[in-house]
Design a protein around this nucleic acid. Structure first.
Lengths: 277, 277
DNA sequence: TCAGACCATGTGGTCAGACCACACATTACG
DNA sequence: CGTAATGTGTGGTCTGACCACATGGTCTGA
């Protein structure tokens, strides 16, 4: 066992651990909510050191596949949770930081996904869902036409954004609510992949969006416009007009980043925040 | 320093390392091609153990931000490389394995991105780029209208797919070339984010695509159709017709997965050995 | 002089052992 | 009967020690 270093050549120990867990996931031996064996047990079973097990678990944790907790009893240990948002955010944010992604590419991609979501939502409640006008939403892969999307979760967020007086959100809070609104649309559309990607894209450029606030001629004017546009998006979706919905979303996002004067990265202070559970 | 265990509360050591490296990336102190300090040095500088440094590096490695190499001299050590494809693939694949992502959501998302890419390519070479017919490609965020996309890299792959005789690709090779073709389109479009996401989405369901081959009535018939469709996609793009390009791509992808009989996971019921309580 | 062998050095990869803080379960005690 | 003390197992971390590897300088012999 000790002399196992004779053949570590191609596969590194932590990769074996990763592969083993992935296989357990694919075979169904492990699923959401399940506990992984303890690090020490896993190490003994796979014949590797605990360090290697930990490196694999760390990867899975960052990727949003599990959470770890100290202590004993239920709720402790490493538990499978499939929460792709966190992992997607980390990945995109770090790639932007390392210049693997351009910020405008991120924005452009977000635009594509959001317009597609809006178009799909607008089309999904109609009788003639999937009209030729909307190529994007016309996928025979999508689930059976939902009767009509319930936009209540989204509109509730809009209500919060329009609060006045003491409850009036600060720019930071406003943008957070804005992110929530857009995410809720993706969630209502029912595509977890898109929702996760949108969250990741949005989070990765959160600092840029915030840094752009001072560049605005008037936060009041802009925020009022954003509020109106949000309502317009909802109206377009409820009106069953995919093209209008897409266009409204497109303008909404495009205008803000144009006004905020993009290209100025928010150096040093990274926004990030604790990986909320 | 030793008694640093008094306040590890909120931030775990490896996260500090991660944050430190991220800050270096954002500040420009680290960039693509740069070497990170050695693990031992980094550990000493940050006042953490080497294990913690390694856990952070492992995360960055999986996310596609750096590669590590043993030995000494240039080329060894941890080097910053911003290659998001690998990380995106791992993330999506594992999320699918952990049931965080549904396979049909992955396919639907891929559809959205690929149709958007095709539409953008078709529109980018025209004088009236951004016509109202193509909402998706109409983003004022996209880079200045490229003169006309050079599809040579894509068509070369198609040539390889159409090789006959000894060079004729096997189904596995064919699908690999197919993935390359689609990736090359995204690459030509110039959006790294989309390219990475497409690669990740495609890779994560590679096994499903392969598992579907036996379900086809005739591989020859299907592969011939795919070849024709690839040429049609290129033709539509060169023809400057965004709608046709999107539709062609949409049909291309949709049809294959329909023929391949989706919904059936690649794994048949495995023994399901819960070697842990 | 030069080419080859040789070894010192530094790197990541891995392991083993040892603590700590924590959370729960059990037990002992008032 | 309830509360406090204790036991147990978990992840989190650090330390020290090897290994395999790649480089670069040094030494040796032709």
């Amino acid at each position: 066992m000790i002399g196992e270093t004779l053949s570590p050549a191609s596969t590194r120990a932590w990769q074996e651990v990763l592969t083993h867990i992935e296989n357990d996931l694919l075979s169904g031996a492990l699923g959401p909510g399940d506990h992984l064996p303890s690090e020490r047990t896993l190490a003994a079973e796979l014949g590797v050191g605990r360090s290697s097990v930990r490196e694999a678990l760390r990867v899975l944790e960052v990727l949003g596949l599990l959470r770890t907790q100290t202590g004993s009893g239920p709720g402790s240990g490493a538990i499978i949770i499939a929460r792709p948002s966190g992992g997607m955010s980390s990945l995109i944010r770090l790639q932007v930081a390392a210049q693997g992604f351009r910020v405008d590419d991120v924005v452009a991609t977000r635009l594509i996904l959001e317009t597609a979501v809006a178009a799909q939502l607008a089309a999904s409640g109609r009788d003639d869902a999937g009209a030729s006008a909307s190529v994007i939403a016309d996928t025979s892969v999508e689930r059976a036409a939902t009767p009509r999307p319930d936009l209540a979760p989204a509109t509730e967020i809009l209500d919060a954004m329009e609060a006045t007086g003491a409850a009036e959100p600060t720019p930071g809070e406003f943008l957070a609510l804005d992110a929530q609104f857009h995410y809720s649309l993706a969630e209502i559309a029912g595509n977890e992949v898109i929702a996760a990607m949108m969250t990741g894209l949005r989070n990765s450029i959160e600092s840029y969006a915030l840094a752009g606030v001072p560049h605005l001629t008037s936060w009041r004017t802009t925020s009022d416009r954003l509020r109106r546009e949000h309502r317009a998006i909802v109206a377009a979706i409820e009106g069953g007009d995919p093209v209008a919905a897409s266009q409204t979303v497109n303008d909404h996002i495009t205008q803000y980043y144009a006004e905020a004067g993009f290209g100025t990265p928010a150096t040093s202070t990274l926004p990030k925040g604790p990986h909320h559970g």
